[in-house]
């Protein structure tokens, strides 16, 4: 049996059987999460998987069965993750949300999690519709897109990546559930990042939004995807000398845990430290009715929330009783201060 760097089989990273529609993009993303966590050698014990409500938010049941998880409330996954994160800052938080969960009911919590640079991987499984309530448009649906048996959408979309970049998010990527290799590299990189890592994954809804007129159908995305780079993820435990040097131009991005994401130039050479250029790519893609995918933005510098809070080195959940309760002498001193 094949084992990963910490001697665990892939089965230790799998979850229960999926109950989503056959062919759902979300199941492909679940498989990528399983592969990325396994190949990165993260201990399943040390992962907390989080989600909100919706089709996408059901998926934590389908991966990482040996990890604790919390399927929370609609749009409120970020706040629950925040509380858990500051309580046990050493856990890896892998969170799943959808476009309804994030771009509508949960947009406030999405914004503020980013603003705090909460240390988490935040996956948005973005299909442009509400699946569980049978196919209403969500707020990410493109102007001009049309789902099955419905009128064309005329409102402009909320682009979650553009929003994240504007908010100072420290890792912003867009991918496609059908681009397994790209998504896996970006997922591994996100897991190696410290801070909020947003991956907005276009994940077609095969039941309600996979018709030709939809900008989020499999066919449309395959034909209209603009990839920024092609990626190689080089894990921290693999000596760089063993990695084949690509023939064309490339740029290496060193991630927090020492892993490297190697960006090989395809078209224009996008520098992911350039937020303005990233926004420009998003803007042009929208104008041309395309989807730009890849690592849009990366900034390893800002502190994370737990760092800003100046917390004990020991996770707060593991502090002993005498660490969290001041002594009797403390109380006596306090009372005499109040009495003086």
């Amino acid at each position: 049996m094949k084992l990963n760097i910490i001697d665990l089989p892939k089965d230790d990273y799998k979850g229960g059987p999926s109950s989503l529609c056959p062919g759902c993009g979300h199941d492909q993303i679940s498989n990528v999460v399983i592969n990325a966590a396994w190949e990165n050698g993260i201990e399943p014990d040390r992962i907390a998987k989080m989600s909100g409500i919706g089709c996408s938010s059901k998926t934590p049941a389908y991966f990482l069965g040996k990890s604790h998880g919390f399927n929370t409330l609609h749009g409120r996954m970020p706040s629950v993750t925040t509380g858990a994160n500051v309580t046990n800052k050493d856990l890896h938080f892998i969170a799943v949300s959808g476009d309804g969960d994030t771009a509508s009911i949960g947009i406030g919590q999405f914004v503020h999690a980013i603003r705090r640079n909460l240390n988490m991987v935040y996956i948005i499984e973005n299909n442009g519709v509400y699946g569980l309530t049978k196919g209403q448009y969500s707020a990410t649906v493109e102007k001009g897109s049309q789902k099955r048996k419905a009128k064309m959408n005329e409102s402009p979309p909320i682009d979650l990546c553009a929003m994240a970049i504007n908010l100072g998010c420290t890792f912003v990527a867009r991918s496609f559930s059908g681009s397994k290799k790209q998504l896996t590299s970006l997922m591994k990189a996100a897991m190696s990042h410290r801070g909020t890592a947003i991956i907005d994954v276009i994940s077609p809804c095969v039941t309600f939004n996979n018709n030709d007129e939809s900008f989020r159908s499999y066919g449309y995305v395959k034909d209209n995807q603009t990839e920024l780079h092609s990626y190689d993820f080089i894990p921290k435990f693999k000596p760089i000398t063993e990695v084949e040097v690509p023939e064309g131009e490339y740029r290496d991005i060193t991630l927090f845990d020492g892993s490297i994401l190697r960006l090989e130039t395809i078209g224009s050479d996008h520098d992911p430290s350039d937020a303005v250029n990233a926004l420009s790519h998003i803007h042009h893609a929208e104008q041309e009715q395309k989807h730009v995918t890849g690592l849009l933005y990366h900034n390893p510098v800002p502190k994370t929330l737990d760092e800003m809070l100046n917390l004990s080195n020991t996770p707060l959940a593991e502090l002993s009783d005498d660490m969290i309760r001041p002594s009797e002498e403390n109380l006596e001193a306090l009372l005499s201060e109040l009495r003086s």
Binding site: P78, T82, G83, V86, L309, L311, N313, M323
Partner: peptide, 29 residues
Amino acid sequence: NLTCAVIQTEDELAAAGMVVGAGWAGGRA
């Protein structure tokens, strides 16, 4: 370092959500 985290939240929904997340993770929230 502090043995208690303090977060001024965006609204009371988030405040309650953080309490639930912290309590779930083993904290006194």
